[in-house]
Design a protein around this nucleic acid. Structure first.
Lengths: 280, 280
DNA sequence: GGGTGTGAACACATTCACAGCG
DNA sequence: CGCTGTGAATGTGTTCACACCC
């Protein structure tokens, strides 16, 4: 396994192209018998967004939408939206639009939301606390059914209505409660260990807030949310903008210093920035 | 503005392709004078990951790495890594590898981390609390310098060492403290309003945890982190796997029920899932 | 007319594979 | 000889534009 075939999750970047999981497949698949049902990863992410927009419409008792309207509500352009929807079937009416209720149903079905997925949160620090208090996590459909922490003082204490269990019991509790999604909100050090236990407990999907690249068997899906990376990407854009501004004023004939002098000021110390998320 | 030119942030998906921001450009640019310094969005996200891996190596007093080693540490393949690094210049030595310190410096420079970006967190609920307690957010380089909330009981109370200010003072405080990055951790309702104020206060980058599509001027960068979407994407993969398994056993000649009966069980109620993140 | 659904064109991203340098 | 750096090939995702249906 020399940096090939060891493909696991990546960091992502939320932009124009887009997606985030780094699935496997490629080799191993009989190639031919492939499910045509292959919805592009990027489209799946957007379906979830459309679903939210649709729920909003539904609450306002709006029963029909056009691709233009829905696209605007979801913040994408209508061509993309129509293509995305076409991956799940043809549920629109030409000349009219889509029926909100139908679309909601179809997207839910596609995303597998017709089945409940119980969630376990590991690491009841600041973030874990926040997650547990979600009150049923992302709304229902994703009930939090187990919490874990290392700290003996926390074990037994109910957070958001659920008593915290000890990390040592992850395997047992998860298989018992049929947890399908595990959320890792621990410091980096414990993350891989926790991950291994979740997997041993039968968890097949992991949402990882710890800034580590987790090693998992190929049938486990990992998604990573990395605050530091997000911030650094934003930082990049600030820098780029400043550069452009500098370049522009240069062109304009202004004399505000030579190009290349734009940002260089403070330095070092960013290294510690990477020890960061650890204490979330 | 009919769903075109109104491009704002999207939801993302962290997968193989990947990226997340939905920048503008396209029209408006004089085309020719474009900065060749165009690093692919996806590569930027990974640079941040490499940076973390390099920091780790640096702490272990490792001074040199090959692309294979670093790629393994970052969870990507070496070709991708080399290409990514090539966007920022040629800092490797053929036959040897890269000097850790040099690479750290160059990536920091590229990401604009040589300048400090002060951060404001709005919405000191569970999540906001977690973020504020980061103790300098993503590690330093990103000092949290302002906190805001609506709740009068919170105003004045120090969280993570910084006293909470009232939302009404966002504009004033942000410009005063030269905040460049704003983090929105409020319920959906308040998000757009808060966003507008941050922008008015001079903030040019926003990290948004509220599940809304924010409207911002084109010179403001928005990144969205949406827990519900993450969960739903995971859910999709569970469903897909089950489908495959079912299809497989079908092929194997087993008779565990007809295809199409795989997941359909619980239903409805997912709608409320989208009212979720609101209370983070 | 109005709006969906989609092939075909395009743009972006990843991977390959190898030339070239230390 | 090993490893970087990169053009060229491939793959994935987005946009265009229009046929087709209501």
């Amino acid at each position: 396994m020399t940096a090939h075939g060891a493909d696991v999750q990546d960091g992502d970047g939320q932009a124009e192209a887009d997606s985030r999981i780094e699935s496997k497949q490629s080799v191993e698949v009989p190639a031919a018998r492939e499910r045509a049902r292959a919805i592009p990863e990027a489209a799946v992410a957007r379906l979830a967004v459309y679903l939210r927009a649709l729920s909003g419409l539904s609450e306002q008792d709006i029963t029909t939408v056009s691709s233009d309207e829905l696209a605007a509500a979801a913040g994408v352009n209508s061509a993309k939206l129509r293509k995305d929807l076409s991956y799940i079937g043809s549920y629109g009416t030409r000349g009219v639009g889509y029926e909100v209720a139908v679309l909601i149903g179809q997207i839910e079905r596609t995303l597998g939301l017709t089945r409940k997925h119980s969630v376990a949160v590991v690491g009841i620090g600041n973030l874990g606390h926040a997650l547990a208090n979600y009150g049923g996590f992302p709304g229902r459909g994703f009930p939090v059914s187990a919490l874990f922490d290392l700290d003996p003082d926390l074990v037994g204490v109910p957070v958001g209505g659920i008593p915290v269990s000890h990390i040592d019991d992850i395997v047992e509790v998860c298989s018992e409660r049929e947890v399908t999604i595990g959320v890792i909100a621990t410091p980096v050090q414990g993350a891989q260990e926790v991950c291994d236990r979740l997997v041993a407990g039968g968890v097949s999907c992991i949402l990882n807030f710890a800034p580590v690249v987790l090693q998992v068997p190929e049938d486990v899906e990992v998604r990573k949310v990395d605050l530091a990376v997000e911030m650094q990407i934003l930082s990049f854009h600030v820098a780029r903008r400043q550069q452009e501004a500098a370049a522009q004023s240069e062109v304009d004939g202004a004399d505000l210093g030579p190009p290349g002098t734009t940002g260089e000021q403070v330095s070092g110390e960013v290294e510690s920035a990477n020890r960061m998320v650890e204490r979330l």
